[in-house]
Simulated assay, not measured.
Amino acid sequence: MRYVLDPEITPALRGELAGLWAGVVNAGGAVGFPPGIGPADVLPELDRHLAGVAAGSTRLLLGVDERGAAAATAFIAHTGHPLMGHWVWLKTVMVRPDIQGGGAGRQLMGAVAEAVRGFGGISAIRLTCRGGMGLERFYASCGYKEVGRVPDAIAVGGGELRDDITMWMPLT
């Protein structure tokens, strides 16, 4: 996989990202929506992310496969807070379902760390993940440490609640 930081956001890429996002959700991914959605359902949230990219407050790291198709994403958001400018939020980390399990997620997380180190002045990455899916173990294996947990903060439907887990990785 090849990674592109801040690719040009074209209508075609926007469509690919919406399809990737819906596909990840429908395969059981924990990226903000319940299963059973289509690309149109994620567009309002995707457009909020892309507005941050356009404004310069968010960076998009895009993984593309050998055909040049969107295969992985990570949105890297600056906090915008004067006391928290030394770290970034990692949001909407996704790997296309057909390539999951083969190391693509670990490769993406390595590419994220490399990209953020290149920003200058950033000493840590923060992310949140949904409990009950093993994601905290995956992120821990990539160098992140669990630093907080809010029990039952995420309602996934059908009365099921999951913990909201905060992970942190120093870059130094």
Rank of each mutant, 00 (worst) to 15 (best):
A77R: 14
L108M: 11
R117G: 09
A18N: 05
R137A: 14
P35K: 08
G80C: 11
G118F: 12
S123A: 13
D152P: 00
G148I: 14
A22R: 01
F119S: 02
D41C: 01
A40E: 15
D164H: 10
E146L: 13
A18I: 06
G52S: 12
L108E: 00
G148V: 13
A55R: 13
A70Q: 08
V25Q: 02
F138H: 01
G80K: 08
V42I: 04
G103N: 04
M169F: 05
S57W: 04
M133E: 11
D65Y: 07
A77H: 09
A30H: 04
M169I: 08
S123W: 01
G28M: 05
G102D: 05
G85A: 13
D47Q: 08
M169L: 14
W168E: 01
Y3W: 07
G52L: 06
V24N: 02
T172Y: 15
R117H: 09
A12Q: 14
D6T: 09
R67V: 10
G120F: 02
I165C: 01
I154W: 03
T79Y: 06
A140K: 13
I37M: 14
G103E: 14
A113D: 05
G23K: 04
R67G: 12
M94K: 03
G143L: 04
E136I: 05
A54M: 07
A113V: 15
V42M: 10
A22I: 08
V95N: 02
E146A: 14
S141F: 03
G80E: 08
T10S: 15
V156M: 04
P7C: 12
E114C: 09
G56S: 12
K91L: 14
P97D: 10
G132N: 08
G23N: 06
P44C: 15
L50C: 11
A27H: 12
G63L: 03
Y139H: 11
V93Q: 05
R67L: 09
P82L: 08
G68H: 15
V112A: 13
P34H: 09
D65H: 10
G121Y: 03
R2P: 00
R126D: 06
V4H: 09
F75M: 00
D65V: 04
G80T: 13
L61T: 03
G29V: 07
W89C: 02
L60C: 04
D152V: 12
L62I: 06
A115M: 09
K145F: 11
L5R: 05
A40H: 13
V116H: 05
R67Q: 14
P82E: 09
L17C: 11
S123F: 04
F138V: 09
S141A: 14
A74C: 11
